[in-house]
Nucleic acid binder design. Structure first.
Lengths: 210, 210
DNA sequence: ATCTTCCCCTGACATTTGTCATGCCGACCG
DNA sequence: CGGTCGGCATGACAAATGTCAGGGGAAGAT
């Protein structure tokens, strides 16, 4: 139950972020901490998985937005393959829904990139010790925005509408009549309290509900 | 005309990025270079301007996406107030149009965050020596996507339509008849070769034309 | 000077989208 | 069991949107 393993073996880290500049800088800063050791780096989701299998790190620090597979998906796979590896997600602009999905995927920590490196190092130790850490502000956002009020079909139709497709196309893809599609869209719009379907799509995206 | 001022006074840098983690890490890495000196940091557009006025750096390294005012806007102000200060823009996901606007604003360098810190240091020296540097891949994107085919009004109307506002509202805000607004929207859609206004907004955003 | 071309602007018409009333089915409760 | 509630689905009607033909004016070409 020691939070900081003073003289023990260091915490082995995997760092995954598609931005070289940031990943490298982060690796350099975390290397300054005596009890932390970066054993692998990755620039994409699949690469992160491969690196994790090869090096079996204690803690995986994953960016939420990566090419190939996002942080949450990687976390899900890791949970199955390497149960001993704790996952910490770092994100630029956190959406409430992402936090929820991340926690469901067994992620132990969730922090925005606005924290300092010093703070991040502390959080890595917290997570490694078996505790959880969620950024208070992101947690508050997630709680205040609550669960999705949308039903399964509403969310499905809204997702198909997300890229501006016309109703006919959505109806075809969902195997529904046009009237039904409009109805779901309308219902989603009123539940979300917005003006039109496009605002609904934006809001649902912000909240991470689609 | 010395590209690397070996024993001269160091290059004075301003670093602006809203993500603490990255800014701090970057500052630490650049500090390792003997000829570079970070004299100021900022987390927002206005703050970056204030810091620049106070410290008069040789080179300003600005993130493109910042609260308050984006990198290009800051660059425009800097050009007027501190003509001696070179501006280098760093961006996560570069849109072609942003590069063009940046160059028009007198920016001397434009690089994605996928470069290494080592490389960034070299580019800072290049820019400080009075030369320009634009990431080859971003430049290729910008050239292949070309100039905006939209007229001034078309772009204006498209921008007002960007957040899903209905035509009536756009017409009011632009002081136009509804028919005219629809016409501009329609023209933009056909010029961009897409299905509907929403796809047009997305494409124009991607290209940095709005 | 006149012609051509492009941009700006408009209203009328057809199409698409949003809203409403309605029916069906399964789940939950008394 | 019968009743009620919420999700799923539909078509009819009203409102918003996209498309079209066309007029006026400024800039550049012949």
């Amino acid at each position: 139950m020691t939070a900081v393993p003073e003289a023990g073996r260091p915490v082995r880290l995997l760092l995954a972020d598609d931005e070289h500049l940031i990943r490298g800088a982060l690796a350099a800063l975390l290397a300054l901490e005596d009890d932390l050791l970066v054993v692998a780096e990755a620039a994409s989701g699949p690469e992160a998985l491969a690196m994790a299998r090869a090096h079996e790190p204690d803690v995986a620090v994953l960016d939420l937005q990566m090419p190939g597979a996002d942080g949450v998906r990687v976390a899900t796979s890791l949970r199955a393959e390497l149960p001993g590896c704790r996952v910490l997600i770092v994100t630029g602009h956190g959406r409430p829904g992402h936090l929820k999905r991340a926690l469901e995927a067994g992620v132990r920590g969730f922090v925005p990139k606005t924290v300092s490196a010093q703070r991040l190092a502390e959080i890595i130790r917290t997570v490694h010790a078996g505790n959880r850490y969620v950024d208070p502000e992101l947690a508050a956002d997630a709680i205040s925005s609550g669960d999705s009020p949308l039903t399964a079909r509403e969310a499905e139709v809204l997702e198909l509408a997300a890229d501006g497709a016309p109703v006919v196309e959505i109806a075809e893809r969902a195997a529904l009549s046009q009237g039904t599609v409009r109805n779901y869209l309308s219902s989603a719009v009123s539940k979300l309290g917005v003006e039109n379907r496009h605002a609904a799509v934006r809001l649902a995206r912000e909240r991470g509900w689609v």
